[in-house]
C-alpha cells in the first residue's frame, strides 16, 4: 500500500478546475518533486496533501485513511502527527527563538522536550544559534530552523513548499543536503518547486499544468545531490 494515494482528485472553484482528475501515488521513503507554472494547481495539491484543504471530489488516502472525508478537527490531528511542513517564507514565530520555534511543534504534538529540540537544531547545524530570534538569523538559517521544526515529531511525510525559493545557492545546497539526509533516514519527501535544479534532485518529478498531471519523470541517476548549472 502506498503511503499517499490521490485518486481522481478535483478541486473546483466555480468554473475553475484548480485540480482536474489528479491521480498520484507516493511510496513510503520516496522523494518526489512537484513542478509546474503558477496557477497549475501545485499549492492546491499541497494544501490537500497537507490536510489544510479538502478536494471537491476524489479520495486522498494517507496511510490508508481517506483524509478527504475527515472533519477539520481530525485533519488537524493528522497534520500534527503525520506531516511536517516547510514553507517558502519560513513562517517562524518572530518572538520565539530558534529552539522555542522547534519546541512549538512538539508542544502541539505531545510534550515539549528541550534536549530533543536542541538535537534537531544540531542536525541542521544550528545548535549554536538556538537562542537567537528569527530576526537574528539569515534566510538560510531560518529555513534550517523550519526543517528542524518539520522533522522534530518524526512525521510520515515532509511537505516542502518552495523551500529554496528565498535562498541563495549556498543555502539552497545546504537545505537540499538536509533533505538528502532525511531521505536516507527513510523520510518521505514531497517538494514543490519552481526550480528545475531542486526538482531534479528528487527520485521522481511530477509536472502539473492546468490542474492536471502533465508529465512524470523518474530520475534514473538519483544521487540526492544538487547539481548547479552554469
Amino acid at each position: 500500500m502506498s503511503l499517499l494515494e490521490l485518486k481522481h482528485i478535483y478541486k473546483i472553484y466555480g468554473e475553475l478546475h484548480a485540480l482536474d482528475d489528479v491521480n498520484l501515488k507516493v511510496e513510503k521513503g520516496e522523494w518526489v518533486s512537484i513542478m509546474g507554472p503558477s496557477g497549475s494547481g501545485k499549492s492546491t495539491m499541497m494544501n490537500i496533501i497537507g490536510c489544510m484543504d479538502k478536494p471537491s471530489k476524489g479520495e486522498v488516502l494517507l496511510d490508508g485513511v481517506d483524509i478527504a472525508r475527515e472533519s477539520g478537527k481530525n485533519l488537524t490531528t493528522i497534520r500534527r502527527d503525520k506531516i511536517g511542513l516547510i514553507f517558502q517564507q519560513f513562517h517562524l514565530v518572530n518572538y520565539l527563538n530558534a529552539l522555542e520555534n522547534v519546541m512549538l511543534a512538539q508542544y502541539y504534538h505531545s510534550i515539549p522536550d528541550e534536549k530533543e529540540a536542541l538535537e534537531a537544531l544540531d542536525r541542521v547545524g544550528l545548535a549554536d544559534r538556538a537562542k537567537h530570534l528569527p530576526s537574528q538569523l539569515s534566510g538560510g538559517e531560518q529555513q534550517r530552523v523550519c526543517v528542524a521544526r518539520a522533522l522534530i515529531n518524526h512525521p510520515e511525510i515532509i511537505l516542502a513548499d518552495e523551500p529554496t525559493g528565498n535562498l541563495d545557492d549556498a543555502n539552497e545546497e545546504t537545505v537540499v543536503d538536509l533533505f538528502h539526509k532525511l531521505h536516507d533516514e527513510g523520510t518521505t519527501l514531497i517538494v514543490v518547486t519552481h526550480d528545475p535544479e531542486v526538482a531534479e534532485v528528487a527520485q521522481r518529478t511530477v509536472v502539473l499544468r492546468n490542474g492536471k498531471i502533465h508529465k512524470e519523470t523518474v530520475n534514473t541517476n538519483f544521487t540526492g545531490k544538487i547539481r548547479f548549472r552554469d
Binding site: 500534527r80 513562517h91 511543534a105 502541539y108 504534538h109
Partner: peptide, 16 residues
Amino acid sequence: RKEIGLRKAIGASDKS
C-alpha cells in the same frame, strides 16, 4: 494572522 495560520498548520487546535 500568519502566526495563527502557522500554529494551526503545525497542529494547533482551535482550543489551543
